[in-house]
Amino acid sequence: MAYFERVDESTYRATSQVGGAWDTATQHIAPALGLLAHVVERDRDARRTDGLLIGRLSYDILGTLPVDVVEVAVRVVRPGRTVELVEATLSHNGRDAVLLRAWLMQPGDTARLAGTAFPAITPVDDMPEWDPTTVWPGGFIASAEVRREQTEPGRAAFWVRTPIRLIAGEEVSGLARAASLFDIANGMTVRAEPKTVAFPNIDLTAHLFDVPEGDWLGFDTTVSFGPAGIGLTSSTLHDHRGPVGTLTQILTLRPS
């Protein structure tokens, strides 16, 4: 089972596993974000051998996608020996739906400097299981295994993993696999019932100071709603070793 099946070099078919949470007839955007990260890494590896690391993934979500065939494209916006900016797009029937800009950066040995003041979260084995389908429909949410400690609505730590492959029969990196889970953050500790308030995100930006490892991805998440129709979901990302980066999603608030 997989979220996508490759059709050819630049075309993929979404499966029923990507069914969305706001509308089950459209894609949950999370797997598509992982697909674009994979596309950027494949393009990098085809062009160069020095293993630039992705330090930032910044996505703009331009519209919804049906559960159908999608096309991808990638170009280098700013080439460089040690730093480059790469842009990738995901489209359906000629209409762009997601735009990714990724900064790729030269790796180096900075182990002696490594450290962060971001606090740890409860280890995955000590966190209680939680069923996200009690809040959300759709194939993607149903495919996710979640463990969660919620402090209050809009504030929680949680771990997420999925047994579903990103692309059928194709190996992907730990980063691409993690990126396919990033967008779940906005729905794991809701401030308001989705039946009374819609709060989809129109972007997602991840800054990473380490590459996520392992099957489980951890989130320390706060959801904020402003008084004028805009919200923000902000997370610290974790793997089994500790914090590895941050994640933000801007929300459009739509009370029913």
Rank of each mutant, 00 (worst) to 15 (best):
A2T: 08
Y3S: 01
F4L: 05
F4W: 02
F4V: 02
F4M: 04
E5Y: 09
V7L: 08
D8E: 07
E9C: 09
E9Y: 08
S10L: 13
T11H: 09
Y12V: 11
Y12W: 15
R13W: 00
Q17D: 10
G19I: 07
G19A: 02
G20Q: 13
A21S: 10
A21V: 09
A21Q: 00
T24S: 10
T24G: 07
Q27R: 01
H28S: 01
A30K: 01
P31T: 10
L36W: 03
A37H: 07
A37V: 15
H38C: 12
V39W: 07
D43M: 12
R44L: 15
D45H: 08
A46S: 12
R48F: 06
G51F: 12
I54S: 06
R56Y: 02
S58D: 08
D60M: 13
D60L: 03
I61V: 08
T64H: 12
T64G: 10
L65H: 01
D68R: 05
V69L: 13
V69F: 04
V70G: 00
E71M: 13
V72K: 07
R75H: 07
P79K: 07
R81Y: 10
T82S: 14
T82Q: 10
L85I: 00
E87Q: 03
S91A: 04
S91K: 06
H92C: 13
H92A: 12
N93V: 15
G94R: 03
V98I: 03
A102M: 01
M105C: 15
Q106D: 14
P107Q: 03
L113M: 13
A117I: 09
A117T: 10
F118S: 15
P119K: 06
P119M: 01
I121G: 12
P123W: 11
P123R: 11
D126S: 12
E129L: 14
E129Y: 14
P132N: 00
V135F: 08
P137V: 00
P137I: 01
P137L: 01
G138R: 13
F140S: 05
A142K: 15
S143M: 09
Q150V: 09
T151P: 14
P153D: 05
P153F: 08
R155A: 07
A156I: 10
A157P: 05
F158G: 01
W159H: 01
R161P: 02
P163C: 05
I167P: 11
A168F: 03
E170D: 09
E171V: 04
I184D: 08
I184R: 06
N186P: 00
G187D: 03
M188V: 05
T189W: 01
T189G: 02
V190D: 09
R191F: 04
K195I: 04
F199W: 06
L204A: 12
T205R: 11
T205A: 12
A206K: 02
H207C: 11
D210Q: 09
D210S: 06
D210R: 13
D215C: 02
L217K: 00
G218C: 04
G218P: 03
F219M: 01
V223N: 11
F225V: 11
P227W: 04
A228L: 14
G229E: 07
I230R: 15
I230T: 13
L232A: 08
L232Y: 06
T233H: 13
S234V: 14
P243Q: 15
V244M: 02
T246P: 14
L247N: 09
T248C: 02
L251Q: 08
L253P: 05
